[in-house]
């Protein structure tokens, strides 16, 4: 292992990590919004929209991001629809992530028993209060593990942004590998960089799960 090579190229990796993190987080944020909207459209059975959302979720979940990115970046411009590489990255990640987030929110909402809503009505809560104080806290607590799993999944998926010629971690590593031939050092740093990015997310996930467990009334999580 050539440590001086590693020392010289740390700044390159920091730059790459920044691109990965920034566009990963844009994608995660947009996915959450899209996912929540899709989930609500299905939960409240909005006519027509709910069918469209259903079809979208199936398409997004059953195609690879790599193919989606090629279609966005190289296919669409041929019929006159042009996006920058950065826009393609966020659109692609949101298209994929929105479907996964919608499923996570849905599983959370479905886990809240009907009797909870009815009990809320019985003690005189308005519909809005019921959602705010009864349904959402419990739904979110159930959805949190799946949401964080999706966040980690989406940040990992950003490794495909190199096909958009973006200088993310993967592309930085690939460029160094082809130019220098120090394959082992390059890959070692790549692994380390992803660990540095993803370990904190995983830690936050564990903390959030612990913090939100109260809504399970103790019985669903015996541990």
């Amino acid at each position: 292992m050539d440590w001086s090579f590693i020392g010289v190229h740390v700044p390159d990796y920091i730059g790459g990590a920044w691109v990965t993190l920034r566009f990963g987080l844009y994608g995660v944020a947009c996915s959450m919004v899209l996912g929540l909207l899709c989930c609500l459209a299905q939960y409240f059975r909005v006519p027509v929209l709910r069918r469209i959302v259903g079809a979208y979720i199936e398409v997004a979940r059953n195609t690879p991001l790599l193919v989606q990115l090629f279609f966005l970046y190289q296919g669409l411009p041929r019929v006159g629809i042009r996006f920058s590489a950065q826009a393609c990255a966020v659109i692609g990640l949101t298209f994929l992530g929105g479907a996964y987030m919608a499923e996570a929110f849905r599983s959370g909402l479905e886990a809240v028993d009907r009797s909870q809503t009815e009990a809320g009505q019985c003690i005189g809560l308005t519909a809005a209060q019921n959602i705010r104080f009864v349904i959402l806290p419990q739904a979110l607590a159930t959805a949190v593990p799946a949401l964080f799993a999706n966040i980690i999944f989406l940040i990992k998926e950003t490794s495909m942004f190199s096909v958009l010629a973006m200088m993310d971690l993967m592309n930085v590593a690939d460029t160094l590998r082809t130019s220098g031939g120090r394959t082992i050092e390059v890959l070692f740093m790549l692994v380390a960089a992803y660990l540095v990015l993803l370990l904190p997310v995983s830690l936050i996930a564990t903390l959030a799960e612990r913090r939100l467990r109260y809504a399970g009334f103790g019985d669903r999580h015996p541990v």
Binding site: K156, T158, M160, M170, I184, L187, Y194, L198
Partner: peptide, 17 residues
């Protein structure tokens, strides 16, 4: 934790080295 693409790189390019 590791993107599958990273694992592919490690096996395809790394194992040779």
């Amino acid at each position: 934790f590791m993107p599958q693409l990273v694992l592919l790189y490690i096996v395809y390019f790394g194992f040779a080295r």
